[in-house]
């Protein structure tokens, strides 16, 4: 069934094709996560879980994360599997669409970045840069359900 959602990130409201992204990710989740052997590190969850972010910082963190996935993650996730590549393209283009919508709100200064969200995102980047690019990108893609669960 249609699973578009209006997600509220602070003062910003974004209509998101959540169900489509979830269906795309669920189709490749086992494949992608199997390519990430590192159990001891998470890009998004540790040391501070996304779930501990204040609601006032939600918009800024989400803005950063959309940019993070679009700029840094998807392009380094090419696999030898054509089906997986097609699903990654589907998710990447959906993220691009969401990023554009949130950007409009961000440009209207209704998406302030407080100290906590800046620190939180720095931690995510540090986790990402602690690994080689392909491993970091694949791990980030494998953690997409963590992001989607938190966004909803």
């Amino acid at each position: 069934t249609a699973g578009n959602k209006i997600l509220h990130f602070g003062a910003c409201r974004v209509s998101v094709s959540m169900a489509e992204i979830r269906v795309g990710f669920t189709a490749i989740k086992a494949n992608i996560q199997a390519r990430d052997p590192i159990r001891t590190l998470s890009i998004l969850s540790y040391p501070h879980s996304l779930h501990k972010v204040n609601s006032s910082d939600r918009c800024c963190i989400t803005h950063h994360l959309f940019n993070f996935y679009v700029d840094k993650v998807f392009k380094h996730c090419k696999t030898e599997d054509s089906y997986v590549n097609r699903k990654i393209s589907s998710i990447a283009n959906s993220f691009l669409s969401m990023k554009r919508k949130l950007e409009q709100c961000h440009e209207q200064n209704r998406c302030e970045c407080g100290r906590e969200s800046t620190e939180k995102f720095k931690q995510i980047l540090a986790n990402y840069e602690g690994l080689n690019v392909t491993s970091a990108a694949m791990k980030s893609l494998g953690e997409l359900d963590i992001l989607l669960d938190w966004m909803e």
Binding site: S17, E20, G24, V70, D71, F74, K75, S82, Y83, N85, R86, S89, S90, A92, N93, S94, L96, S97
Partner: peptide, 30 residues
């Protein structure tokens, strides 16, 4: 963002038909 790369649709690789169902791949509003 990905060097203008193209992605093949495996269901429409080396087909004899002159039509291809691209619904599953057109899955974002871009």
């Amino acid at each position: 963002y990905a060097n203008e790369s193209w992605i093949p649709i495996s269901e429409c690789s080396l087909i004899t038909a002159t039509a291809c169902n691209i619904t599953e791949d057109i899955s974002a509003t871009v």
